[in-house]
C-alpha cells in the first residue's frame, strides 16, 4: 500500500480513463470525451453511495440521464430556427436541461422516495447536467446519428465505470493492492502504441477484407 487513508475513488479515476482509452483504441467504441464520461460515472457513484440498492440506483441514474439529456435536446430542437446568438442559445439549452433535472427529481422522489434534499445529492444531478455541452457539440459537429451512438456508448461506459467506482469489493481490492495502478500504467502504454485495426474496423471494412480474400 503506497498511500494510506486515501479514498479508493481517487485511485479509480485513472482506471476509468484507461477503460475509456482501451474501448476507444482497441475495441473502437467512440464515446464522449473523458470528462463527460467520468462525470456520468461519478453521478452513478453518488446515487449508489446514498441509495445502497443497486437496481434502484441504476433506475434513478437512468431517469436523471434520460430526462436531462432529453429535455436539453428538446429545447435545442425547439429553438433551432431562431436566429439568436450562440451562447444565448446554449444558456436556453441548459435551462431546458435544468427543467428536465427538476422533473426527474420529482419522478425519482415519487417512485423511489429518494429525496434530493442536501447538496451532495444534487451534485449527482449537476454532474449529469454538465454533460449537455458535449452532447450538443457532438450533435453539431458529427451529426445526429453519431451523437446518438456516442451518447449510448458513453451511457454504457459511464454505467460500467460507475459500477466499478461504487463496488465495495473492488474498492477494497484497489485500496489494498495499489500496485494495480502500475499494471494500469502498462496497459496505458500498450494502448498508447496500439496501431492495429480496431475491432470495430474489422466490421467496418469487412467488405474490403472479404473482397481481397476472394481475389
Amino acid at each position: 500500500m503506497f498511500f494510506k487513508e486515501i479514498s479508493p475513488l481517487l485511485l479509480n479515476i485513472p482506471i476509468v480513463v484507461s477503460i475509456i482509452a482501451f474501448t476507444r483504441y482497441i475495441i473502437g467504441f467512440k464515446t464522449w470525451r473523458n470528462y463527460p464520461t467520468v462525470a456520468l460515472a461519478l453521478a452513478f457513484y453518488i446515487v449508489a453511495k446514498l441509495n445502497h440498492n443497486f437496481i434502484q440506483s441504476f433506475f434513478i441514474w437512468l431517469i436523471l440521464f434520460v430526462f436531462i439529456i432529453g429535455s436539453a435536446s428538446t429545447f435545442k430542437y425547439l429553438i433551432r430556427k431562431l436566429k439568436i446568438n450562440y451562447y444565448a442559445r446554449s444558456a436556453i439549452v441548459y435551462l431546458g436541461g435544468t427543467i428536465g433535472a427538476i422533473l426527474s427529481i420529482y419522478i425519482v422522489n415519487l417512485l423511489f422516495q429518494f429525496a434530493y434534499t442536501d447538496e451532495f445529492r444534487v451534485f449527482s444531478v449537476a454532474l449529469i447536467l454538465s454533460t449537455i455541452d458535449e452532447f450538443g457539440a457532438v450533435q453539431l459537429i458529427k451529426g445526429n446519428i453519431e451523437a446518438l451512438r456516442r451518447t449510448l456508448t458513453s451511457f454504457i461506459l459511464g454505467l460500467l465505470s460507475g459500477i466499478l467506482l461504487s463496488s465495495a469489493w473492488w474498492n477494497n481490492v484497489i485500496y489494498k493492492n495499489q500496485w494495480i495502478l502500475l499494471l494500469v500504467l502498462c496497459l496505458d502504454f500498450v494502448v498508447a502504441f496500439w496501431s492495429s485495426l480496431r475491432l470495430t474496423e474489422l466490421s467496418r471494412f469487412s467488405a474490403i477484407i472479404n473482397r481481397s480474400k476472394a481475389d
Partner: peptide, 20 residues
C-alpha cells in the same frame, strides 16, 4: 492471420494517426 492480412491492406484510424 486474418488480422495480419487485414493490417497489411487497410489503413485504420490508429495507424493513420500514429504512423502517418
Amino acid at each position: 492471420d486474418f488480422l495480419t492480412e487485414s493490417r497489411s491492406k487497410i489503413l485504420g484510424v490508429n495507424q493513420r494517426n500514429q504512423s502517418i
